[in-house]
Simulated scan of single mutants.
Amino acid sequence: MKNLKGVRVMLVDDEPHITQFLEFGLLNEGFDTRTAPDGMTAVNLALEFQPHVVILDVMMPGMDGWEVCRLLKKNLSNVAIIMLTAKDEVEDRVKGLTTGADDYVVKPFSFEELLARIGARLRNQFPALYGEVSFGPFRLDDRRKEIRYRDEVLELSPTEYELLKYLVINHGIVLSKSTILDQVWGYDFGGDENIVEVYIRFLREKLNDKEHRLIRTLRGAGYRVDLP
């Protein structure tokens, strides 16, 4: 991943030997890296540094990783959070993911695995860093604001583009209307959430998805893209 210049990674852990080890490895991979020894420092640093990825310990004095995760997701427009912790019980994993974490790595860990997980989060949440990215029959080119479906360029409005990109990148995940509104229209959108239904209908027409096999509706839950 040395060709991904300008990717910002923030390390949050109260154990200096871990942050030093990770910082050395990530700098060697070409990442712009910052470290924070506690939760409050991490929140303040993140607002200034605007990281693409945060490697976040859970058990820290003062503000723990759960609260840091919640605040980062609330205050940053787009950030990938990978929880790094010795807590490996299922309930801890569930808590991390429901708090907003995008991935969960248990200590002890391999640096190569962590690097692979960072790459996976970047491809999913920051496709523009890679140019074109493929997801099944879709090819996304965020720099050109263009999506191809089965090798045909879709004629999309800016909002349709952002909505389809968000659905495709998060394929296999059920996304509620409120989540889609926050991520596509923005947290300060004051309109009716039924606008999501309208734009989903637009996309289905352009994808010839008459039977809703590609963009599925899960009544009472939201929408999910299923890739063939």
Rank of each mutant, 00 (worst) to 15 (best):
V105G: 06
Q125W: 06
Q125I: 04
H52R: 07
D92M: 13
H52Q: 12
L26K: 03
M59R: 10
F31Y: 12
Q20M: 15
P16W: 04
L71K: 08
V90N: 10
V43N: 02
H52V: 06
R117A: 00
F21W: 06
D103M: 03
D88L: 10
P108F: 05
T41D: 10
L26R: 01
I55T: 14
D38T: 14
K95F: 13
F31A: 01
L27R: 15
Y104C: 02
H52E: 08
E67Y: 04
A120P: 00
P108L: 04
K95W: 12
Y104V: 00
A116N: 08
M83T: 09
V106G: 00
A86I: 03
E48M: 13
G100T: 02
E29G: 04
D57P: 02
Q125T: 09
G30N: 07
H17L: 13
E89M: 05
S110A: 13
P16T: 10
K87G: 00
T35F: 00
E89W: 00
E48K: 14
P61H: 01
N28V: 05
K73F: 04
N78A: 13
E29N: 10
Q50V: 08
G30S: 08
L27A: 08
M83R: 11
F49M: 04
E112K: 10
R117E: 01
T85D: 01
M59H: 05
L115C: 02
A36C: 09
D88W: 06
I55K: 04
G100Y: 02
G65A: 05
E29V: 07
R93T: 02
A120S: 13
T98W: 06
R34Y: 04
G62Q: 10
V105D: 05
P16H: 09
A80T: 00
K107P: 04
K87F: 00
V90T: 14
P108Q: 07
P61C: 02
I18V: 15
I18G: 08
A120K: 11
V68L: 09
G65C: 03
R117C: 01
G30A: 08
